[in-house]
Simulated assay, not measured.
Amino acid sequence: MYTGIQHLHSGIAYLALLALVVVIIYMLIGSLSGREFTEKDRKIGLIAFILCHIQLLVGLILYFVSPLGFAMLQTGNAMSDPAARLLAVEHPVINIIAIVLITIGYSRAKKPGPSRGRFRNIYMMYALGLVLLLSRIPWTLWLG
């Protein structure tokens, strides 16, 4: 079960990161072109929003069933080892903050207002979230 959840978490990560990049570019183009923010634009933003939240849910499940997550904190050795600290503390906390930023961007864009501002809410908050996500990916485990 653990290995399956770990593979699911890695697979969804690729989809979520790709969706974030595509949505950021799409919303940036929408903002710069001066077109109206439509229901289609909101739904395109929703795709990355949903993928990121599914990723968060799978990640939280993995955090509590993995020997590299919450269990590592209980041993007391996580904070002294940089690799263990990344997996047990930094990765989950920073990624939760990133998902909160993405949620704020999407929620603000749903509210009525000027189209340019709605596009901007999504591309700026999603971009901040993407930067945070990329900063805390355990690259050695993910690519190795």
Score class of each variant (00 low, 15 high):
Leu15Pro: 00
Gly59Arg: 01
Ala48Arg: 02
Leu101Phe: 15
Ser135Gln: 05
Thr140Gly: 02
Leu8Phe: 14
Ser10Val: 07
Tyr14Asp: 01
Thr38Pro: 08
Thr3Gln: 14
Ala109Asn: 07
His91Asp: 12
Ala19Val: 04
Leu128Ala: 15
Met79Asn: 13
Ser10Met: 12
Thr140Pro: 00
Met125Leu: 14
Gly59Val: 05
Ile5Ala: 08
Val21Gly: 08
Ala48Leu: 08
Gly76Ser: 08
Lys40Thr: 12
Thr75Ala: 02
Ile137Lys: 01
Gly34Lys: 04
Gly105Trp: 00
Leu57Thr: 14
Val131Gly: 07
Leu15Gly: 03
Ala127Ile: 03
Tyr2Pro: 00
Arg136Met: 03
Gln6Tyr: 12
Tyr106Ile: 03
Ser10Asn: 13
Leu101Ser: 10
Ile61Asn: 04
Leu73Asn: 01
Glu39Ala: 13
Ser107Met: 11
Ile25Cys: 11
Phe49His: 12
Lys40Met: 07
Arg118Ile: 02
Met72Trp: 07
Val93Lys: 05
Arg118Phe: 02
Ile47Val: 15
Ser31Lys: 15
Ala84Leu: 11
Leu132Asn: 02
Leu87Ser: 08
Ser115His: 03
Ile25Gly: 13
His9Met: 10
Val21Trp: 10
Met125Glu: 06
Met79Ala: 09
Pro92Phe: 05
Ala71Leu: 13
Thr75Leu: 08
Gly34Ala: 00
Tyr106Trp: 15
Gly69Trp: 05
Leu51Gly: 05
His91Gln: 10
Trp139Phe: 13
Val22Tyr: 13
Ser33His: 11
Leu128Met: 14
Pro112Cys: 02
Val23Tyr: 04
Val22His: 08
Ile96Glu: 06
Ile24Val: 14
Gly11Thr: 12
Val93Gly: 05
Leu143Pro: 03
Val21Ala: 14
Thr3Ala: 10
Ile137Ser: 02
Lys43Asp: 07
Met1Lys: 06
Arg108Phe: 13
Tyr14Val: 10
Arg136Asp: 01
Asn77Glu: 13
Val100Gln: 05
Leu20Ile: 01
Ala98Val: 05
Gly129Pro: 08
Ile47Glu: 05
Asn95Arg: 14
Ala109Met: 06
Gly45Leu: 09
Ile99Leu: 11
Leu130Pro: 05
Ala71Phe: 09
Leu56Gly: 01
Leu133Tyr: 06
Asn121Ile: 03
Val131Ser: 00
Ile44Asn: 06
Leu132Ala: 04
Thr38Lys: 15
Pro67Met: 06
Gln55Leu: 10
Leu17Ser: 01
Leu132Cys: 08
Ala109Lys: 06
Gln55Pro: 00
